[in-house]
Every structure is written in structure tokens, then in C-alpha cells.
Amino acid sequence: MNRSVIRAAHRPCTLVVCRGCCCGNPRKYPGTDHAWQLDRLRAGAVNSGGRFAVRTTDCLGPCDQANVIVVQPSTTGRQAGARAVWVGFAMDDDCTDDLLRWAAEGGPGVAEPSAALALQVIRPPREARARARR
């Protein structure tokens, strides 16, 4: 069997952390330790034993709701009908803890986010919604 097919069949939940123009910008949000947050997320992924992954990307778009983190469902979550969940205003330790816990539990389609995290869910930009419909 082709290895890429095997890897795709077991894709974990993924946290996509925006680090574009506003998200992660210490000049714009000096009260948040953006580097520490990213270090915590990455360490959580390493310590999860492969239950979730973390990657960064350039600007995702909703800059007025920075920091933005997109929680992509695992293969299991997608099979259950889940789509990516966009979380805005993700700047404090409580939110980071909730994201780590949710991703470790399986993320969208597998586990429910905390009540506090559910309040931070934002609408993705129009371009992302169009891609999701394809």
C-alpha cells in the first residue's frame, strides 16, 4: 500500500496557528507572550503522542479577532462530518489550555470544546467558507 494513503488515513487533529500581520504581533498585542503560546502548543503536540499536530501559517484574515487558531478535524472527525473550527481572540493561558485539551481529546467531530472555547468560535472569512464548500 502507498505510504501517502496510509498517512492520509490517520491524519490527526491539527491546530493551525496564525502568525501573520496581527496574530502573534507583540507590537500590536504587547500583553500577550505569543512565542510562549506557540511553544506551549508545540510542546503539547509533541507530548500528545501524535494525537494532534501544530503548524503555523501566514495571515488567515480576520485580523480584528486576533489571535486566530483554526482547529482542523482529524480523519475520524471528518468522517463524522466535522469541519474546521475557527477560534478567535486566542491569547490567554486559559484559551491555550482549552485548545490543548480539545485537540488531545480529538478535536472537532470527536470531542466537544469547552464552554469558554465555544464562545470564542468565529466565522471564517468568505474565502475559507468558499473553499470548505468545494
Rank of each mutant, 00 (worst) to 15 (best):
C59H: 05
T14C: 05
M1D: 06
G50N: 14
I6L: 13
L38G: 02
G50P: 10
R55L: 05
V68S: 04
V17M: 03
A45D: 07
R126Q: 15
C23I: 05
A103D: 09
T76M: 08
Q72D: 14
W102F: 07
C18H: 00
C95M: 09
L99E: 04
A104P: 10
R42T: 14
P124L: 05
Q65V: 15
P113K: 02
P125F: 09
R83F: 02
G49F: 04
A104V: 00
G106P: 01
P108Y: 02
R19I: 07
L60Y: 06
V16E: 10
G88C: 10
L38K: 09
S114T: 00
S74N: 10
R51N: 10
T14G: 08
C63S: 04
C13G: 00
M1C: 03
A80E: 03
A8C: 02
V85F: 00
R55C: 11
R51I: 07
A82L: 10
V16M: 09
C59G: 12
N67C: 15
L99C: 08
P113E: 05
M1Y: 09
A84P: 04
A118F: 03
L117Q: 06
H10R: 00
E127K: 11
R123I: 07
C13D: 01
R3S: 13
A116W: 04
A45P: 08
M91P: 04
Q120T: 06
